[in-house]
C-alpha cells in the first residue's frame, strides 16, 4: 500500500517541472507539451484522492480533464499551424501581435 502523500509529491514534482517548461522554454511546441504535463500531474492528484477516499468522483473529473485536454490540444495545434503559416516563427517572445 503506497501512502497518499507519495502520490501528491509526485504530482507536485511533475507540476513544477511542467511549469518550469511553460515559463522557461521559448519554443511554442515545448510550452504546449509542458502544459500537457501539468494537466496530467493534476490528474494524478485527483485519482489519488479518489482512491484514498473510496469515491468515484475524482476519477470522473479526471476523465473530464482528459476529454477537455484533448479538445484543447486540437485547437491549440490548429492555432499553432495557422500561426506558423502566417508568421513563420516558433518562439514565444516573437509572437507579440496582441501587444499594443
Amino acid at each position: 500500500m503506497v501512502p497518499l502523500h507519495w502520490y501528491i509529491i509526485l504530482g507536485v514534482l511533475l507540476f513544477s517541472i511542467g511549469m518550469a517548461g511553460v515559463l522557461l522554454r521559448r519554443n511554442v511546441l515545448i510550452v504546449l507539451l509542458s502544459l500537457e504535463l501539468m494537466l496530467n500531474s493534476v490528474n494524478i492528484n485527483l485519482v489519488a484522492f479518489s482512491h484514498s477516499f473510496g469515491d468515484f468522483r475524482g476519477q470522473i473529473i479526471a476523465i473530464f480533464v482528459i476529454a477537455i485536454t484533448a479538445a484543447e490540444v486540437a485547437v491549440a495545434l490548429g492555432v499553432l499551424v495557422a500561426l506558423v503559416r502566417n508568421k513563420a516563427t516558433l518562439e514565444v517572445d516573437e509572437i507579440t501581435t496582441l501587444k499594443g
Binding site: 522554454r25 521559448r26 485536454t69 484533448a70 490540444v73 506558423v84 518562439e91
Partner: peptide, 23 residues
Amino acid sequence: VIVLFLFVIMMMDVREEARIRFM
C-alpha cells in the same frame, strides 16, 4: 495527443533558432 504533436512537429520546419533552450 502525442501522435498529433509529432505530426505537427514533422509538418513544421523546426529551425535552428527555435531550438534555443531557455529564455
